[in-house]
Each structure stands twice: as structure tokens, then as C-alpha cells.
Nucleic acid binder design. Structure first.
Lengths: 205, 205
DNA sequence: TGTACATCAGTGAACGCGCGTTCACTGATGTAC
DNA sequence: TGTACATCAGTGAACGCGCGTTCACTGATGTAC
């Protein structure tokens, strides 16, 4: 039973780890297959024992990211308990927590240009993960009076957009901008105000 | 008076144009100085007559972007007339319009990794442009009861984040996701709900 | 108006580099007897 | 337990490529007389 492989031990996972580290440090385009191999202490050619090529390696990193992300989101959602509102807020926090804790994965998923459609497994993983957010939004939207209830997909798109925007603009130092507020606070208050606008939180607080 | 230059005509601007086109088509990392030169019908070495190098060319593209962006935002803001609310909404629309109309500039500004700090002129241009959004937010926040008024910077950060998120996730087809709604509608409704949450728009509509 | 000259935008060849990918190979490992 | 063998993970050399940057140059342009 080859639990630890022949020579290296577990090159496949080591390569994914190097990929994540490099992508986190240098951005999706600063990443090179050769450097990932070097990081793992291996010849570039060895990579081809495990991956079809550069893109395939990034796709695997993204795939693993969506799996982790989906788990975190589902755990936060927790079947919609104790309430649709609290479950929804928890998924918002989980989004940001994921971006903070797994920046390499985040970049591989959302900034690398890897298409979700590139293989069915990746697609399934991504769909599941993003589905949790939509589910939480759908649950919560039941509490909005039907006449001024936006489609749940729109609802979740708003929240996703704000979350992604906070991550990109303020949770990284990228454009030389320093965040005026802690990103977590920014997102928390932003979502809070938005939900108040939907009548889901009492206006007076 | 060398209005049109010696040989090429106006190589400097032609190179910026090529840079924008390539950056729009291939992303910030797909852009190469050599290809921009080729596009402009010129040897790579010729670029060095006008720019210090690759990064400098991208920075110039970003700089021009911030200038255009700033103009659009100021025009939309229009001194806060006819009302703080309408001026604010107009800046939100202008943001998205800019991203749509000048995608190359947008990418150079927000996705290329070029720091705003790299030279004072760029910094000034960016600060002015982003300052308009903050000004519009500050004006508008005067209409919120002081006891539940968030800091204007936070307010404008929320709007910026949602706008940027909508652009990145839904106004481009990048992650293989197709937008469930037109980005403009998404942003309009999102900002509307947010402002209702601040008590700036009547809740019943 | 015509000629001589200075300028300097763009050339073309060359550089060293790291990239992604291929290929025949080798030698450590696991397995069968 | 010991030996012979098959497997296949990783090697190392090689490929062609496009990149960013440098340099001495050339020749079209604008200018002075």
C-alpha cells in the first residue's frame, strides 16, 4: 500500500502546496511550474508525472480551495440554524475568514483566470460551495414581504459582490491602498446595513 | 513645433493604446512590452525612447485611467446637485460605466498590481478620483441621523467594495460564471437596498 | 529659395534568462517466488 | 528469509520560444544660414 510514494514521499501534494505558496506570494501570473518544482526539490519534468501541465496544477489548487470553501460555508450555514438570519451572517463571515486563512486558494479560485468549466469535478465543487451562499440567501429571503422581495439570486449576488470587493480592495494591500478599517468590520457593517435595507433587521439599533 | 513626431507620428500614445488593448484582451500579465511594440509597428527597443520599461508603460496607462475616471466621477457628482442623494447615485453609475467603457484602464488601475505610490503624479490622480466618491458619501451622510451615521469613509468603502465586486465577478466573464442579472441592475439595486438600510431612501417603495 | 548641418526617433543585432514541454534513461522501491 | 524481477517516480539533457533590456548605428526630420 503506497501510502507514502516511491521517492519523494508525496510529490503531488507537495506541488500543490508550492503552487499555493507561490500564487499567494507572487500572484497568479508570477507562478511558474518550474519554480513550483524547484520549491518541492524536484526537476520540472517530474511535475508531468502528476499533472498535465501548468494550468492543470493551478486548477487542482482551485479545486481543493473550493472543497475547503464549501466545507467552511456549509459548517457556517449549519442547516439554517438557529435562524435564517444568523446562518446567513455566519456564511458572510466564513467567506472573509476563508479569504484570510487560505489566500493562495482564494487567488487560484477567483483571480487566476481558471475557468470553473474546465473539468466536471471542479465545476461540481464550485457549484456546491457557491450554492451554500445562495441557499442561505433563499432561506432568509422568505422573511421578506413578498412584494418587495428581490430574487434570492440577486440578493446573494449583492452579498458576494460586497464580500469579494472587500477582500480584493481592503484585505490585501495590493493597490497601495491601506484599509481605513479592518476588513472584517467593513464587511460586517456593510452586510448589516444592507439587511436593514431589506427590512430583515430592525431599523433602530 | 513637433506636433506630430519625427518618424512614427505619436509613438508614445500609440504604445499606451496598444498596452490598453493587450491588457484588456489578455489580462495584466499577458501583456508584454515586445507585443505592444509590435502592435504599434515598432521595434521593442523604440519603447525605451518613451518609457523606462514595461512597468512604467503600465503605470502610464493606469495614470491616464485615473484621470479619465476622475473626470467622469466629478462630472457625475456635479458639485452635489441637484441633491446629495442623486449625486451619490450618479457616481455609483459612473463607476460601472467607466469599468465598461474603459476595461483596459480599469485593469491597469485595479488588477495590474501597479502601486499608486510609484510616482507622485499617479498618486495625485488616483487620490483625486477616489476622493470624489468619498466626497459624495460625506455629503450624503449628513442626511443620516448623527446617532446612527457610519463614518463617511466606511460608507464609501462599502459602495466601492460592492461596485468593484460587481465589476470583477459579473461584468467580466472571467471565472466562467455568467451573470444572473445585468451588472448595472445588480449594482443599482444593491446600492438602493444599502441606502434604504441607512434610512436615506423611504423603506416603502 | 537652397544647401549644410545637428538632432534624435527608431533600427537591428545581440545578450542572457527562465519558461513549458519532450524524451530516453536510471535506479529505488515493492512484489513474486 | 533471500533473491530475481517488474514497476514507474523522478532525472538530466535538450528543444524552441519570447521575454526585457543594451548598444552602436542610421537616416528622416527640423533648423540655421
Amino acid at each position: 500500500m503506497p501510502k507514502r510514494g516511491y521517492h519523494h514521499g508525496n510529490l503531488r501534494e507537495a506541488l500543490v502546496a508550492s503552487c499555493l505558496k507561490l500564487i499567494e506570494e507572487k500572484g497568479p501570473t508570477g507562478f511558474s511550474l518550474s519554480e513550483a518544482a524547484r520549491e518541492a526539490g524536484v526537476t520540472p519534468a517530474a511535475v508531468y508525472r502528476h499533472f498535465a501541465g501548468r494550468e492543470d496544477l493551478i486548477a487542482e489548487a482551485a479545486h481543493q480551495g473550493y472543497d475547503i470553501f464549501g466545507d467552511l460555508m456549509e459548517h457556517a450555514y449549519d442547516g439554517g440554524n438557529p435562524s435564517a438570519l444568523s446562518a446567513f451572517l455566519a456564511t458572510g463571515r466564513a467567506y472573509l475568514a476563508f479569504a484570510n486563512k487560505f489566500p493562495g486558494h482564494y487567488v487560484a479560485m477567483f483571480e487566476s483566470g481558471i475557468s470553473i468549466q474546465r473539468n466536471p469535478a471542479l465545476n461540481a465543487s464550485a457549484t456546491r460551495a457557491l450554492g451554500v451562499l445562495e441557499k442561505a440567501a433563499t432561506d432568509l429571503s422568505q422573511h421578506i414581504p413578498a412584494d418587495r422581495r428581490p430574487p434570492p439570486q440577486m440578493f446573494s449576488a449583492h452579498i458576494w459582490a460586497m464580500s469579494h470587493g472587500v477582500v480584493e480592495l481592503f484585505a490585501r494591500g495590493s493597490p497601495g491602498t491601506k484599509s481605513p478599517f479592518p476588513p472584517a468590520d467593513l464587511l460586517e457593517t456593510g452586510i448589516g446595513i444592507y439587511l436593514r435595507g431589506l427590512g430583515l433587521i430592525p431599523p433602530d439599533r
